[in-house]
Amino acid sequence: MRSVLPVLTVVAVIVALWYAACVPMNIKGVLTEAERAGAAVQPEGAGARRDLPALRLAINNGFAVPATWAQDRPRLPAPHQVAAELWDTTAMKKITSKRSLVYHGWVTLSATLLGFAIGTGLGILLAVGIVHSRVMDMSVMPWAIVSQTIPIIALAPMIIVVLYSIGVQGILPKAVISAYLSFFPVVVGMVKGLRSPDAMQLDLLRTYNAGKAQGFWKLRLPASIPYLFASLKIGIAASLVGAIVGELPTGAVAGLGARLLAGSYYGQTVQIWAALFAAAILAAVLVGLLGLLQRLVLTRMGMA
Protein backbone atom coordinates (compact mmCIF):
# COMPACT_ATOMS: atom_id res chain seq x y z
CA MET A 1 0.00 0.00 0.00
CA ARG A 2 2.99 2.24 0.59
CA SER A 3 3.56 2.56 -3.13
CA VAL A 4 0.04 3.66 -4.16
CA LEU A 5 0.80 7.37 -3.94
CA PRO A 6 4.12 7.18 -5.83
CA VAL A 7 2.58 5.03 -8.56
CA LEU A 8 -0.36 7.42 -8.95
CA THR A 9 2.07 10.34 -9.13
CA VAL A 10 4.13 8.66 -11.84
CA VAL A 11 1.01 7.82 -13.83
CA ALA A 12 -0.25 11.40 -13.46
CA VAL A 13 3.10 12.76 -14.68
CA ILE A 14 2.99 10.44 -17.70
CA VAL A 15 -0.53 11.56 -18.59
CA ALA A 16 0.46 15.22 -18.18
CA LEU A 17 3.50 14.74 -20.42
CA TRP A 18 1.26 13.03 -22.95
CA TYR A 19 -1.13 16.02 -23.05
CA ALA A 20 1.83 18.37 -23.37
CA ALA A 21 3.30 16.31 -26.21
CA CYS A 22 0.01 16.53 -28.13
CA VAL A 23 0.50 20.29 -28.62
CA PRO A 24 3.73 20.24 -30.67
CA MET A 25 2.78 16.99 -32.40
CA ASN A 26 -0.59 18.21 -33.67
CA ILE A 27 -0.21 22.00 -33.91
CA LYS A 28 0.65 22.13 -37.61
CA GLY A 29 -2.35 20.09 -38.66
CA VAL A 30 -4.63 22.15 -36.42
CA LEU A 31 -3.32 25.45 -37.83
CA THR A 32 -3.82 24.28 -41.42
CA GLU A 33 -7.41 23.38 -40.62
CA ALA A 34 -7.99 26.65 -38.76
CA GLU A 35 -6.63 28.68 -41.67
CA ARG A 36 -8.91 26.85 -44.06
CA ALA A 37 -11.82 27.68 -41.77
CA GLY A 38 -10.92 31.38 -41.97
CA ALA A 39 -9.11 32.02 -38.69
CA ALA A 40 -6.13 34.41 -38.55
CA VAL A 41 -2.99 32.32 -38.23
CA GLN A 42 0.54 33.58 -37.58
CA PRO A 43 2.41 33.23 -39.98
CA GLU A 44 0.09 32.64 -42.91
CA GLY A 45 0.40 29.71 -45.32
CA ALA A 46 1.30 26.12 -44.56
CA GLY A 47 4.57 26.48 -46.47
CA ALA A 48 5.79 29.29 -44.22
CA ARG A 49 4.97 27.26 -41.13
CA ARG A 50 6.56 24.04 -42.25
CA ASP A 51 10.09 24.81 -41.10
CA LEU A 52 9.18 26.70 -37.92
CA PRO A 53 9.60 24.90 -34.60
CA ALA A 54 6.28 23.57 -33.31
CA LEU A 55 6.63 25.31 -29.95
CA ARG A 56 6.95 28.78 -31.59
CA LEU A 57 3.80 28.07 -33.55
CA ALA A 58 1.96 27.07 -30.40
CA ILE A 59 3.01 30.28 -28.62
CA ASN A 60 2.11 32.48 -31.59
CA ASN A 61 -1.27 30.86 -32.00
CA GLY A 62 -2.41 30.22 -28.44
CA PHE A 63 -6.04 29.94 -29.50
CA ALA A 64 -5.29 26.72 -31.39
CA VAL A 65 -3.87 24.79 -28.43
CA PRO A 66 -7.16 23.31 -27.15
CA ALA A 67 -7.90 22.07 -30.67
CA THR A 68 -4.77 19.91 -30.59
CA TRP A 69 -6.53 17.68 -28.08
CA ALA A 70 -9.67 17.25 -30.17
CA GLN A 71 -8.54 16.59 -33.73
CA ASP A 72 -10.21 13.96 -35.88
CA ARG A 73 -7.05 12.24 -37.09
CA PRO A 74 -4.27 13.61 -34.87
CA ARG A 75 -0.69 12.47 -35.13
CA LEU A 76 -0.85 11.88 -31.38
CA PRO A 77 -4.35 11.51 -29.94
CA ALA A 78 -4.91 12.85 -26.43
CA PRO A 79 -5.54 10.34 -23.63
CA HIS A 80 -9.22 11.22 -23.34
CA GLN A 81 -9.71 10.61 -27.07
CA VAL A 82 -8.22 7.15 -26.74
CA ALA A 83 -10.30 6.47 -23.64
CA ALA A 84 -13.45 7.64 -25.44
CA GLU A 85 -12.67 5.42 -28.45
CA LEU A 86 -12.02 2.47 -26.13
CA TRP A 87 -15.30 3.06 -24.33
CA ASP A 88 -17.14 3.51 -27.64
CA THR A 89 -15.82 0.33 -29.18
CA THR A 90 -16.14 -1.90 -26.15
CA ALA A 91 -19.10 -0.91 -24.05
CA MET A 92 -21.24 0.93 -26.59
CA LYS A 93 -21.13 -1.60 -29.45
CA LYS A 94 -22.76 -5.00 -29.61
CA ILE A 95 -20.00 -7.56 -29.07
CA THR A 96 -20.87 -9.31 -32.31
CA SER A 97 -20.31 -6.11 -34.30
CA LYS A 98 -17.24 -5.94 -36.55
CA ARG A 99 -16.42 -2.59 -34.96
CA SER A 100 -16.39 -3.87 -31.42
CA LEU A 101 -13.00 -4.23 -29.80
CA VAL A 102 -14.41 -6.98 -27.60
CA TYR A 103 -15.03 -9.02 -30.76
CA HIS A 104 -11.51 -8.36 -32.10
CA GLY A 105 -10.01 -8.96 -28.68
CA TRP A 106 -11.79 -12.30 -28.43
CA VAL A 107 -10.45 -13.37 -31.85
CA THR A 108 -6.91 -12.65 -30.67
CA LEU A 109 -7.49 -14.02 -27.18
CA SER A 110 -8.83 -17.37 -28.39
CA ALA A 111 -5.78 -17.90 -30.61
CA THR A 112 -3.53 -16.83 -27.72
CA LEU A 113 -5.12 -19.23 -25.24
CA LEU A 114 -5.17 -22.19 -27.63
CA GLY A 115 -1.53 -21.61 -28.57
CA PHE A 116 -0.55 -21.06 -24.95
CA ALA A 117 -2.18 -24.34 -23.92
CA ILE A 118 -0.45 -26.26 -26.72
CA GLY A 119 2.92 -24.63 -26.11
CA THR A 120 2.78 -25.10 -22.34
CA GLY A 121 1.70 -28.73 -22.63
CA LEU A 122 4.43 -29.63 -25.10
CA GLY A 123 6.98 -27.60 -23.13
CA ILE A 124 6.24 -29.46 -19.90
CA LEU A 125 6.41 -32.83 -21.70
CA LEU A 126 9.78 -31.98 -23.25
CA ALA A 127 11.08 -30.74 -19.89
CA VAL A 128 10.07 -34.01 -18.23
CA GLY A 129 11.85 -35.90 -21.00
CA ILE A 130 14.95 -33.76 -20.63
CA VAL A 131 15.11 -34.27 -16.88
CA HIS A 132 14.72 -38.04 -17.15
CA SER A 133 16.93 -38.74 -20.13
CA ARG A 134 20.58 -37.78 -20.13
CA VAL A 135 20.88 -38.03 -23.88
CA MET A 136 17.88 -35.74 -24.47
CA ASP A 137 19.31 -33.28 -21.97
CA MET A 138 22.66 -33.19 -23.70
CA SER A 139 21.33 -33.01 -27.27
CA VAL A 140 18.17 -30.86 -27.00
CA MET A 141 18.81 -28.50 -24.09
CA PRO A 142 21.60 -26.44 -25.71
CA TRP A 143 19.34 -25.84 -28.72
CA ALA A 144 16.44 -24.82 -26.47
CA ILE A 145 18.70 -22.25 -24.81
CA VAL A 146 20.11 -20.95 -28.09
CA SER A 147 16.62 -20.66 -29.51
CA GLN A 148 15.83 -18.05 -26.84
CA THR A 149 18.40 -15.68 -28.29
CA ILE A 150 17.01 -15.71 -31.83
CA PRO A 151 13.98 -13.75 -33.00
CA ILE A 152 11.75 -16.75 -33.78
CA ILE A 153 8.91 -14.37 -34.53
CA ALA A 154 10.51 -13.90 -37.96
CA LEU A 155 9.03 -17.32 -38.78
CA ALA A 156 5.48 -16.06 -38.24
CA PRO A 157 4.59 -14.93 -41.79
CA MET A 158 5.95 -18.14 -43.24
CA ILE A 159 4.02 -20.39 -40.87
CA ILE A 160 0.77 -18.64 -41.76
CA VAL A 161 1.35 -18.99 -45.51
CA VAL A 162 2.60 -22.57 -45.33
CA LEU A 163 -0.33 -23.70 -43.19
CA TYR A 164 -2.68 -21.83 -45.53
CA SER A 165 -1.23 -23.61 -48.56
CA ILE A 166 -1.94 -27.01 -47.04
CA GLY A 167 -5.47 -25.93 -46.23
CA VAL A 168 -5.22 -24.99 -42.56
CA GLN A 169 -6.64 -21.57 -41.78
CA GLY A 170 -8.58 -19.69 -39.17
CA ILE A 171 -7.46 -19.84 -35.58
CA LEU A 172 -4.88 -22.61 -35.89
CA PRO A 173 -1.97 -20.86 -37.69
CA LYS A 174 -2.01 -18.02 -35.14
CA ALA A 175 -2.21 -20.57 -32.33
CA VAL A 176 0.86 -22.35 -33.74
CA ILE A 177 2.85 -19.09 -33.60
CA SER A 178 1.62 -18.45 -30.05
CA ALA A 179 2.51 -22.00 -29.13
CA TYR A 180 6.11 -21.89 -30.24
CA LEU A 181 6.68 -18.50 -28.63
CA SER A 182 5.48 -19.81 -25.25
CA PHE A 183 7.13 -23.21 -25.74
CA PHE A 184 10.79 -22.37 -25.07
CA PRO A 185 10.38 -20.26 -21.91
CA VAL A 186 8.30 -23.07 -20.41
CA VAL A 187 10.89 -25.73 -21.33
CA VAL A 188 13.77 -23.78 -19.83
CA GLY A 189 11.84 -22.82 -16.70
CA MET A 190 10.44 -26.30 -16.12
CA VAL A 191 13.83 -27.99 -16.53
CA LYS A 192 15.22 -25.62 -13.93
CA GLY A 193 12.24 -26.30 -11.65
CA LEU A 194 12.31 -30.09 -11.98
CA ARG A 195 16.00 -29.99 -11.12
CA SER A 196 15.53 -27.66 -8.14
CA PRO A 197 15.24 -30.36 -5.41
CA ASP A 198 18.73 -30.73 -3.95
CA ALA A 199 20.69 -33.93 -3.45
CA MET A 200 19.65 -34.16 0.20
CA GLN A 201 15.95 -34.26 -0.66
CA LEU A 202 16.48 -36.78 -3.45
CA ASP A 203 18.50 -38.95 -1.08
CA LEU A 204 15.74 -38.79 1.52
CA LEU A 205 13.28 -40.19 -1.03
CA ARG A 206 15.76 -42.91 -1.87
CA THR A 207 16.00 -43.92 1.78
CA TYR A 208 12.18 -44.23 1.70
CA ASN A 209 12.71 -46.66 -1.18
CA ALA A 210 10.68 -44.40 -3.50
CA GLY A 211 10.65 -45.27 -7.20
CA LYS A 212 11.48 -42.88 -10.01
CA ALA A 213 7.80 -42.16 -10.66
CA GLN A 214 7.14 -41.46 -6.99
CA GLY A 215 10.13 -39.17 -6.86
CA PHE A 216 8.69 -37.30 -9.82
CA TRP A 217 5.13 -36.92 -8.54
CA LYS A 218 5.95 -36.28 -4.89
CA LEU A 219 9.10 -34.20 -5.06
CA ARG A 220 10.15 -32.91 -8.48
CA LEU A 221 6.75 -31.82 -9.77
CA PRO A 222 5.67 -29.93 -6.62
CA ALA A 223 9.11 -28.31 -6.40
CA SER A 224 8.84 -27.09 -9.99
CA ILE A 225 5.52 -25.23 -9.56
CA PRO A 226 7.00 -21.80 -8.63
CA TYR A 227 9.31 -22.02 -11.66
CA LEU A 228 6.40 -23.11 -13.83
CA PHE A 229 4.36 -20.04 -12.90
CA ALA A 230 7.28 -17.70 -13.52
CA SER A 231 7.67 -19.08 -17.03
CA LEU A 232 3.92 -19.17 -17.63
CA LYS A 233 3.77 -15.42 -17.06
CA ILE A 234 6.52 -14.86 -19.62
CA GLY A 235 4.91 -17.41 -21.92
CA ILE A 236 1.44 -15.87 -21.98
CA ALA A 237 2.80 -12.40 -22.75
CA ALA A 238 4.85 -13.92 -25.59
CA SER A 239 1.79 -15.85 -26.80
CA LEU A 240 -0.23 -12.66 -27.06
CA VAL A 241 2.52 -10.94 -29.03
CA GLY A 242 2.65 -14.01 -31.28
CA ALA A 243 -1.09 -13.95 -31.94
CA ILE A 244 -1.00 -10.22 -32.73
CA VAL A 245 2.00 -10.51 -35.04
CA GLY A 246 0.40 -13.59 -36.64
CA GLU A 247 -2.45 -11.39 -37.81
CA LEU A 248 -0.20 -8.93 -39.62
CA PRO A 249 1.21 -10.67 -42.71
CA THR A 250 -1.98 -12.16 -44.12
CA GLY A 251 -4.05 -9.03 -43.78
CA ALA A 252 -6.44 -10.76 -41.38
CA VAL A 253 -9.81 -9.06 -41.09
CA ALA A 254 -10.39 -9.70 -37.41
CA GLY A 255 -8.25 -9.43 -34.31
CA LEU A 256 -6.27 -6.74 -32.51
CA GLY A 257 -3.35 -7.07 -34.95
CA ALA A 258 -5.77 -6.57 -37.85
CA ARG A 259 -7.08 -3.40 -36.15
CA LEU A 260 -3.52 -2.10 -35.82
CA LEU A 261 -2.83 -2.83 -39.48
CA ALA A 262 -6.12 -1.36 -40.74
CA GLY A 263 -5.57 1.72 -38.60
CA SER A 264 -2.11 2.25 -40.03
CA TYR A 265 -3.38 1.82 -43.63
CA TYR A 266 -6.16 4.38 -43.24
CA GLY A 267 -4.38 6.78 -40.88
CA GLN A 268 -6.92 6.13 -38.11
CA THR A 269 -4.55 6.96 -35.28
CA VAL A 270 -7.19 6.88 -32.56
CA GLN A 271 -8.13 3.38 -33.66
CA ILE A 272 -4.49 2.23 -33.49
CA TRP A 273 -4.06 3.61 -30.00
CA ALA A 274 -7.34 2.06 -28.84
CA ALA A 275 -6.28 -1.35 -30.22
CA LEU A 276 -2.88 -0.93 -28.59
CA PHE A 277 -4.43 -0.18 -25.22
CA ALA A 278 -6.87 -3.05 -25.62
CA ALA A 279 -3.88 -5.37 -26.22
CA ALA A 280 -2.10 -3.91 -23.20
CA ILE A 281 -5.16 -4.37 -20.98
CA LEU A 282 -5.54 -7.93 -22.26
CA ALA A 283 -1.90 -8.71 -21.49
CA ALA A 284 -2.17 -7.15 -18.04
CA VAL A 285 -5.33 -9.12 -17.25
CA LEU A 286 -3.80 -12.41 -18.42
CA VAL A 287 -0.57 -11.91 -16.46
CA GLY A 288 -2.58 -10.70 -13.46
CA LEU A 289 -4.83 -13.77 -13.54
CA LEU A 290 -1.80 -16.04 -13.67
CA GLY A 291 -0.30 -14.15 -10.74
CA LEU A 292 -3.51 -14.65 -8.77
CA LEU A 293 -3.58 -18.34 -9.65
CA GLN A 294 0.06 -18.61 -8.62
CA ARG A 295 -0.66 -17.11 -5.23
CA LEU A 296 -3.67 -19.38 -4.68
CA VAL A 297 -1.84 -22.54 -5.73
CA LEU A 298 1.33 -21.78 -3.80
CA THR A 299 -0.63 -20.89 -0.68
CA ARG A 300 -2.61 -24.13 -0.99
CA MET A 301 0.67 -26.03 -1.38
CA GLY A 302 2.16 -24.22 1.60
CA MET A 303 4.97 -22.61 -0.38
CA ALA A 304 4.02 -18.95 -0.21
Binding site: K233, A237, L240, V241, I244, V245, L256, L260, L261, G263, S264, T269, I272, W273, A275, L276, A279, A280, A283, A284, V287
Partner: peptide
Protein backbone atom coordinates in the same frame (compact mmCIF):
# COMPACT_ATOMS: atom_id res chain seq x y z
CA UNK B 1 4.98 -7.20 -19.80
CA UNK B 2 2.89 -5.41 -22.45
CA UNK B 3 2.92 -6.18 -26.18
CA UNK B 4 4.97 -3.09 -27.05
CA UNK B 5 5.52 -4.31 -30.62
CA UNK B 6 2.06 -2.84 -31.17
CA UNK B 7 3.51 0.68 -31.11
CA UNK B 8 5.25 -0.14 -34.41
CA UNK B 9 2.52 1.27 -36.72
CA UNK B 10 2.43 4.53 -34.73
Amino acid sequence: ALPIVGTAPI
